[in-house]
């Protein structure tokens, strides 16, 4: 395999999934209460993309992985201390707002501009990776928009697997309805792949990988370009927390037979 790949992974940061979230209104639109205080993690599906990218790059000597991340510099720095131990990459940080409420169109424009400016990036070898949806906005459109802006018309979403061939054509599995995968063969690069879970477990923390990454991460963070996202087109009418509290009936004294009968009766109504 002598075809090196240039893999750009777009990955944002999101609140740690276990946190309690509460929306608030601010001068720049809606946000999350204490958003900067909440522990953050790399967006889970984008993290899958990063691990797959590192795995793929390792199989193709000479390949390179860039991680393009938009978020507040301090938060990015914090999250990178965990992520940097898991996979080798060069960070391309963009110092911008956090959260799911900014307009994806603005985000995509900034990221596309950032990717275009990456020195040494060969777009004919480009695999643009990311999560198929973020855990914050969850719109599943940013990556496609970046792809379109960069003129890439082979796009795949909900990807769980890629098998790269020697000639840089590849077979890809995308999630489709009904728990099925659509299987496609793409003739070559560049391509956009929005990843779902993928096939790899979360890599172990490797201190050597971390140290090696950190030589470029910290200087990159110090030079992170500050951006403001415009949201002229988008207007939030209301943002609220759903009330899903139910009046739970806790049944402690029924035998398995009785419970089974009640359940079958309940199911049978369909």
């Amino acid at each position: 395999m002598s075809n090196p790949l240039h893999i750009v992974v777009c990955a944002g940061i999101v609140p740690d999934p276990l946190q309690t979230l509460e929306p608030v209104s601010g001068p720049h639109g809606p946000g999350l209460k204490n958003e900067m205080v909440l522990p953050a993690v790399l967006d889970p599906w984008a993290a899958s993309a990063l691990y797959e990218a590192a795995h793929l790059a390792a199989k193709h000597p000479g390949s390179k992985v860039w991680l393009v991340a938009l978020g507040p510099k301090a938060k990015l720095q914090q999250v990178m201390m965990t992520v940097a131990q898991k996979a080798g990459f060069e960070l391309v940080p963009v110092d911008g707002p956090i959260g799911g409420f900014p307009d994806a169109h603005s985000t995509a424009a900034v990221l596309a501009e950032t990717i275009s400016a990456i020195a040494g990036l060969d777009k004919t070898r480009l695999l643009l990776f990311g999560g198929w949806e973020s855990a914050s906005r969850g719109a599943g459109i940013t990556l496609q928009l970046i792809g379109e802006i960069l003129g890439i018309t082979d796009q795949f979403q909900g990807v769980d697997r890629i098998d790269m061939r020697a000639d840089c054509s590849f077979e890809v599995l995308e999630r489709v309805e009904g728990g099925m995968h659509q299987e496609s063969v793409c003739a070559g690069l560049p391509a956009v792949l929005g990843w779902a879970t993928g096939t790899l477990a979360e890599p172990r923390n490797n201190p050597q990988t971390g140290m090696s990454n950190m030589r470029t991460i910290l200087p990159a963070l110090q030079k992170a370009r500050p951006v403001a996202l415009s949201g002229d087109s988008l207007r939030y009418v209301a943002v609220s927390l759903p009330r899903q509290q139910r009046a739970t009936r806790v049944v402690k004294d029924m035998s398995p037979d009785e419970i089974a009968r009640e359940l079958v009766e309940w199911m049978g109504a369909e």
């Binding site: 301090a74 720095q77 201390m81 965990t82 131990q85 923390n205 950190m214 910290l218 200087p219 963070l221």
Partner: peptide, 13 residues
């Protein structure tokens, strides 16, 4: 500390 660049702090380790 991390912003200053001398020290690396690795959580989760």
């Amino acid at each position: 500390l991390m912003g200053a660049g001398l020290v690396q702090i690795w959580p989760g380790t």
